[in-house]
Lab assay of single mutants.
Amino acid sequence: MSRVPSPPPPAEMSSGPVAESWCYTQIKVVKFSYMWTINNFSFCREEMGEVIKSSTFSSGANDKLKWCLRVNPKGLDEESKDYLSLYLLLVSCPKSEVRAKFKFSILNAKGEETKAMESQRAYRFVQGKDWGFKKFIRRDFLLDEANGLLPDDKLTLFCEVSVVQDSVNISGQNTMNMVKVPECRLADELGGLWENSRFTDCCLCVAGQEFQAHKAILAARSPVFSAMFEHEMEESKKNRVEINDVEPEVFKEMMCFIYTGKAPNLDKMADDLLAAADKYALERLKVMCEDALCSNLSVENAAEILILADLHSADQLKTQAVDFINYHASDVLETSGWKSMVVSHPHLVAEAYRSLASAQCPFLGPPRKRLKQS
């Protein structure tokens, strides 16, 4: 649940008159999402009104509101027999009622949201009550392989729920002597030191190019640089560091992050930047690179990204790559990247197969709970 924001200063709310007192009302909304995959969808019983329910879910471990999704594969009634019906059901509720908006969509073979439908307002739910769409999607369109909505005969539904909580009022009075504290510009100011090479005390040599930097900042941000300058190493004695395995453009992006906490060109060089972040123990930059690479996972590059993640101990990226390969196994196994990995990294192939087997055979063990970014 997000923290209630402070109200904007009255002088910034309007260029008009300023009242002596004010009130700011925040209506709290808890948002969460749920993904439900139905394997072997074409084998569902086709009687009209037949119901399939998901397991229950909530916004978190401490949330007492429990929900589930309900599907009628062949419609709810005679009117909707040519459609799939989809509903959000409130299973248990400690209150007399709650209000919530919802959005349903289908994830296609690429994991993209399609055929989205959402409620136009927050509906009133009581325990045992459901709301949804009797005519969510035509069955003939859903079952047509050309539309790519049932890869490997799996129907994957994605649901986003927004639950309306209580409202909170914050009130106060205006004073004539309003003090406005300026925003912190530390990142910009440190970035200026790097860009202008002011007050530098060490030189970093990268592929024949020299960059002036500040030992204190490098040591504070990177345990690797800290070790170089702290001990009686040649880098500490000469205040000069030779860097041979990072390209200059990648190095500059890494230094921008060290000084400012930002990497504006990360998406263009996420793979190389991940390697640099791993070498210099820049954990936050490493996770930022993992996130960017996750966003660009595809059938063509899944094997290469899995190898990269394994090489640099990028655990979150590795998990996402394995899950992606499992979901698109029939396509990924035909790529040149996968065939190369079979020869060069057989242990990763074995890991992917083990994960695929456990996903398809849940009876082999208890269900695993899916539970950071600093």
Score class of each variant (00 low, 15 high):
Met1Lys: 00
Ser2Gly: 00
Arg3Thr: 05
Val4Lys: 10
Val4His: 06
Val4Leu: 01
Glu12Phe: 13
Glu12Asn: 10
Met13Val: 04
Ser15Asp: 11
Glu20Lys: 05
Ser21Cys: 04
Tyr24His: 09
Thr25Arg: 09
Ile27Arg: 10
Phe32Arg: 06
Phe32Pro: 07
Tyr34Asp: 08
Tyr34Lys: 13
Ile38Lys: 02
Phe43Lys: 12
Phe43Trp: 11
Cys44Phe: 03
Glu46Cys: 12
Met48Asn: 10
Ile52Leu: 09
Ile52Pro: 03
Ser55Cys: 04
Ser55Ile: 06
Ser58Lys: 13
Gly60Glu: 02
Gly60Ile: 12
Gly60Phe: 12
Ala61Ser: 12
Asp63Ala: 11
Leu65Val: 15
Lys66Trp: 03
Leu69Tyr: 07
Val71Pro: 03
Pro73Trp: 06
Glu78Cys: 11
Ser80Thr: 07
Asp82Tyr: 05
Tyr83Cys: 11
Leu84Trp: 07
Leu86Ile: 06
Tyr87Val: 00
Tyr87Gln: 00
Tyr87Leu: 09
Leu88Asp: 00
Leu88Glu: 00
Val91Thr: 13
Cys93Asp: 11
Glu97His: 13
Val98Leu: 02
Arg99Pro: 09
Lys101Ala: 10
Lys103Asn: 12
Lys110Ile: 12
Gly111Cys: 01
Gly111Ala: 02
Lys115Tyr: 06
Met117Ser: 12
Met117Thr: 05
Arg121Glu: 09
Phe125Gln: 00
Phe125Lys: 01
Gly128Asp: 09
Lys129Ile: 09
Gly132Arg: 02
Ile137Val: 13
Arg138Asp: 09
Leu142Val: 14
Asp144Phe: 13
Glu145Asn: 03
Glu145Gln: 15
Ala146Tyr: 15
Ala146Cys: 07
Leu149Gln: 02
Pro151Gly: 10
Leu157His: 02
Phe158Arg: 09
Glu160Pro: 00
Glu160Phe: 09
Glu160Met: 13
Glu160Gly: 04
Val163His: 06
Val164Leu: 08
Gln165Asp: 06
Asp166His: 15
Ser167Leu: 06
Ser167Gly: 07
Asn169Trp: 02
Ile170Pro: 01
Ile170Asp: 07
Gly172Arg: 02
Lys180Ser: 03
Lys180Arg: 03
Val181Phe: 01
Glu183Ser: 08
Glu183His: 05
Glu183Gly: 02
Arg185Asn: 04
Ala187Asp: 06
Asp188Ile: 06
Trp194Cys: 05
Glu195Pro: 10
Phe199Tyr: 14
Asp201Phe: 00
Asp201Gly: 10
Cys203Leu: 15
Leu204Gly: 13
Gln209Leu: 05
Phe211Trp: 15
Phe211Ile: 01
Gln212Met: 15
Ile217Ser: 05
Ala219Gly: 06
Arg221Thr: 14
Ser222Lys: 00
Ser222Asp: 02
Ser222Glu: 00
Pro223Lys: 10
Phe225Glu: 00
Phe229Asn: 14
His231Val: 14
His231Ser: 14
His231Asp: 14
Met233Cys: 15
Ser236Cys: 02
Ser236Trp: 02
Asn239Asp: 02
Asn239Phe: 09
Val250Pro: 06
Met254Pro: 00
Phe257Ile: 02
Tyr259Ile: 01
Thr260Val: 06
Thr260Ala: 03
Gly261Arg: 02
Asn265Pro: 05
Ala275Thr: 07
Ala277Asp: 01
Tyr280Asn: 07
Ala281Met: 06
Arg284Tyr: 06
Arg284His: 10
Met288Val: 02
Cys289His: 00
Cys294Trp: 12
Cys294His: 14
Ser295Asp: 15
Asn296His: 13
Leu297Cys: 11
Asn301Arg: 04
Ile305Gln: 07
Leu306Val: 08
Leu306Lys: 00
Ile307Val: 06
Asp310Asn: 07
His312Thr: 03
Ala314Thr: 06
Ala314Gln: 12
Gln316His: 06
Leu317Ser: 03
Ala321Arg: 00
Ala321Glu: 01
Ala321Lys: 01
Tyr327Glu: 04
Tyr327Ile: 09
Tyr327Gly: 04
His328Phe: 11
His328Ile: 06
Thr335Tyr: 01
Gly337Pro: 04
Gly337His: 05
Lys339Trp: 13
Ser340Asn: 11
Val343Lys: 09
Ser344Leu: 07
Ser344Gly: 12
His345Met: 06
Leu348Thr: 05
Val349Glu: 06
Ala350Arg: 12
Arg354Gly: 14
Ser355Met: 10
Ala359Ile: 00
Gln360Trp: 12
Leu364Thr: 14
Pro366Asp: 01
Arg370Ser: 07
Leu371Asn: 15
Lys372Ser: 05
Ser374Pro: 05
